[in-house]
């Protein structure tokens, strides 16, 4: 059937026996830029076709050591500096509106969504994982919201979703220190639902998917709708705040340092 399977430039999906697997594969670190965004839009546009015959969606990565490093900051910076200051924020707002629409659709998908995470899961990558119902993580996975280190806040819905799911204490630690946390800590905090051995996250996610697929689809969808409301008001305020912060010269200066740093560890204060 149309759009049950797709191979794009940055991702692919494959439907088999009621389970659709979305695999990110974009060098070097599955950064979410305009090409991946357009392909994610294609994916969520296929939900109408997929939903009647799909119990579970698994989102994973084919890249070694990486689920996703988050937003493509190089593309963001280069796109922004090329524009007059007044137009910069409009481009950013347009991107944010589109990625929010994608993640809200994944968040409310009428099937169960599982993020199978290995390696780094930072910023926008973590926000993609947070839009899923369940996160299964390889014990070598690491999670972070490094945005404040560059003078920004997470912009793909991360704060409202993490606050919805976990409460403020862990969120504030992640945000205000910008530190990375390992899978064990993320599991203890409730961010990760199931821990997997090294290289086993996808296997564990598939095992869970097979169990979930046994249950009644109507009840499953009703339960999800009941327990997982989308924080629309906060998500809108997040876009406004991100755009407000983005216009400051300090942000462009920090992004410039980050994208131009060729050292073994990119610039982050």
């Amino acid at each position: 059937m149309k759009m049950k399977n797709f191979v794009g430039q940055t991702l692919r999906w494959e439907w088999r026996a009621g389970i659709v697997e979305l695999t990110l594969e974009h060098e070097p670190a599955n950064e979410i830029g305009t090409v991946m965004l357009a392909e994610l839009e294609k994916f969520v546009a296929a939900f109408d076709v997929l939903a009647p015959e799909t119990s579970v969606c698994i989102i994973g990565s084919a890249r070694k050591s990486v689920f996703s490093a988050g937003a493509d900051l190089r593309e963001l910076y280069r796109g922004a500096v090329a524009l007059p200051e007044k137009e910069r924020v409009e481009g950013v707002r347009h991107f944010l509106e589109r990625i929010h629409a994608v993640l809200n659709t994944i968040d409310a998908a009428p099937f169960v969504t599982i993020a199978a995470v290995h390696g780094i899961c930072f910023g926008g990558g973590l926000e993609l994982a947070l839009s899923c119902d369940i996160i299964v993580a390889d014990k070598m996975a690491r999670f972070a919201f490094p945005e404040l280190r560059l003078g920004l806040i997470p912009g793909f819905g991360g704060i409202p979703r993490l606050k919805r799911d976990l409460g403020n204490a862990f969120l504030r630690d992640l945000l205000f220190t910008g530190r990375t946390v390992n899978a064990t800590r993320a599991h203890a905090a409730g961010l990760v639902a199931q821990l997997a051995g090294e290289g086993e996250a996808l296997h564990i996610a598939r095992s869970g998917a097979a169990q979930i697929a046994k249950f009644d689809a109507v009840t499953r969808a009703a339960a999800k709708k009941f327990i997982k409301p989308i924080p629309h008001d906060e998500l809108r305020r997040e876009i406004d705040l991100f755009c407000e912060l983005f216009t400051r010269p300090a942000v462009m200066a920090a992004l410039k340092k980050f994208v131009e740093d060729s050292g073994p560890m990119p610039y982050l204060p």
Partner: peptide, 9 residues
């Protein structure tokens, strides 16, 4: 940086 984070984990 990726390998450094792997080592940290």
């Amino acid at each position: 940086s990726l390998q450094t984070l792997e080592m940290l984990s």
